[in-house]
Nucleic acid binder design. Sequence first.
DNA 1: CAAGAATTGATCCAGATGGATCTATCTGGC
DNA 2: GCCAGATAGATCCATCTGGATCAATTCTTG
Lengths: 172, 172
Amino acid sequence: MSCRNKLDTIFRSDLRDLMLISYVVLGNNAVTNRYIERTYRMPVQAWSALFAIVMFPGIKAKEIRALFPRPQNTISRAVSLLEARGLIEQRASAADGREKELLATAEGASLLAEIRAASVARQEELFAPLTPAERETFFELARKIAASPQLLETRTMAIDPESGKDGGSGPD
Amino acid sequence: MSCRNKLDTIFRSDLRDLMLISYVVLGNNAVTNRYIERTYRMPVQAWSALFAIVMFPGIKAKEIRALFPRPQNTISRAVSLLEARGLIEQRASAADGREKELLATAEGASLLAEIRAASVARQEELFAPLTPAERETFFELARKIAASPQLLETRTMAIDPESGKDGGSGPD
DNA sequence: CAAGAATTGATCCAGATGGATCTATCTGGC
DNA sequence: GCCAGATAGATCCATCTGGATCAATTCTTG
């Protein structure tokens, strides 16, 4: 059985949906991450953070976390890297001394525009197999999944089963 | 602007497709990886490899790589871990002394069945927002993307631009 | 059948990852 | 105002990651 046939078999198995979406995203990430890393010497979450900061001037680190589901220290490090390179500036929040408002510098905005153009090109390449109508359908369906709370708050894979506070045995 | 509104804005931007699919998969991975890691003390690729070995007895490490787009040494380590735990066995290939045929042990098959059941449950949870017809449509569209060569072989994000051998400047 | 090229899988190592912890600040009860 | 608890973000550290390299084996070509 060839690798191609093995892949088809997996995409006919009981886990076909998860396997397929993982395949697509792992494959795309391998391509994208390597490019960003080599070309700009920064991890993907750094440019994601820069994207968020350019889109939403004054955004807080905590809010970036809601946009890109990554651990808190990952965002913290990405912000440090961006600041060390002069791509963003941090400004203490007037309302809350713990928070820091993040703002892109001119260099940051310029660099983001460059990475963004490359990302849009990659996006078009990746979605080229779909017609515009199919692409819209795909987007809407993925949107439904993204909008549902169980994407981030699982019941089936709840951790801490001994306390049962997140488990399936509690009241609903 | 709330986090919810920020997210909506991102999903209306020029990078909405990539952002959305990344959001879904990063969010799901956070949930799934944490669970597998905590419950079974193994990285996700280890159970992916076990899945492949149970599905295709005698599979080679190289072939697993084609099923799960991960670096070669990642698969190599995952196989070592599975063997160290007695979940699989390696058998030298008769045809090629470099290759090793991988076979699950009874414990391996049993553990996989357990993880697999949890994964199917998670899959159903994740795709619950879609109707069966929508889910089928989503699968078919993702399938198209997975089947196209540009998923793994990019032209827009080709590395090694100085040699130009994969770059966009060459003949098409 | 010998020498070089190619391929499989293991190992090395610099840097990344993420859970846990720490510090600083804010909020609420008294 | 003071103290306990909550929250934002930084840092620690054990572990993981993946590109590069290595060793063993096979293929190619004459």
